[in-house]
């Protein structure tokens, strides 16, 4: 008897998972359909870019700087043992640009932006603001969802590039604590170790991070159930699912880059 109820429970969970995946797919398809339909809400896109990009700069700057600094300080002793201290700038630059800056910045954006979108749209849903938009013949999906996803897709890669720069500078600060290397010499060594092939896949990957951060936040908020409890749930699910998606996309991106190079 217990065996049957476990079996039913698993089937029910699977059914719910597939239903959720179907709903999310339809939400994605609706985004692409609405994206190309007029009118384009340029003003709201710019406002969202400002809110998501500019307002995230302090947080991204601090984390970027600390990433570079800590990475340098942690790697230095090992490289010194192998007599490869001179590789430090190159190693810091490559690891930051290829992997650490995109992933950490995306995780920060998942925490700040995705949860913010989830909570904002969830609260708008609960307080009937989305319905109010719809009855005044304004397409809420286009105004609220499309604009936010465009903004995250554009802003997250820019934030990642900014984090790269600040992180490299943080690396210089780390080297300067225990060594004497000029900024120009450090920058030259970083640039010598880098190629376009390091920057382009990371930037493309960051665009996908941005898209999923926006999409997941919007999906959770837009589909929030009634009641204030659902606002918290929407924000929480947005962070958890977006963070998990970032790691999955990262894993796939690394595999694809490996195959292509």
């Amino acid at each position: 008897m217990e065996e049957i109820s476990k079996h039913t429970y698993v089937l029910q969970q699977l059914r719910e998972l597939f239903l959720a995946m179907g709903k999310a797919t339809l939400f994605n398809l609706r985004f692409f359909r609405e994206l190309f339909l007029p009118p384009t809400e340029w003003r709201e896109i710019l406002r969202q870019c400002y809110l998501m990009g500019w307002k995230s700069l302090p947080l991204v700057s601090i984390t970027g700087f600390i990433m570079g600094l800590v990475l340098t300080l942690q790697s230095r002793p090992t490289l010194v043992v192998f007599g490869a201290k001179s590789w430090l700038p190159g190693m810091v630059g490559t690891s930051l640009i290829r992997e650490i800056a995109p992933v950490v910045t995306a995780l920060i954006c998942a925490g700040k932006i995705s949860s913010g979108i989830g909570a904002e749209l969830g609260s708008m849903k609960v307080t009937e603001q989305i319905d109010a938009m719809e009855v005044s013949a304004v397409n809420p999906f286009k105004y609220l969802v499309v604009t936010r996803i465009i903004a995250t897709t554009l802003m997250v890669p820019l934030l990642v590039l900014f984090a790269d720069l600040v992180g490299i500078f943080g690396g210089y600060a780390g080297i300067s604590i225990k060594g004497d290397i000029s900024l120009i010499s450090y920058a030259t060594k970083v640039l010598e170790s880098l190629d376009f092939i390091d920057i382009i896949p990371a930037t493309i990957k960051s665009c996908f991070f941005g898209y999923f951060i926006g999409m997941i936040g919007c999906y959770q908020g837009f589909n929030a159930a009634n009641g204030t409890e659902s606002v918290g749930k929407a924000a929480n699910s947005a962070v958890v699912i977006a963070s998990l998606s970032i790691f999955i996309i990262d894993m796939l991106a690394v595999q694809i880059t490996d195959l292509m190079l």
Partner: peptide, 13 residues
Amino acid sequence: IGFLFQSAALYDS
């Protein structure tokens, strides 16, 4: 058609 919601539904932002 004008619709007045129970919660007023003003845009908070």
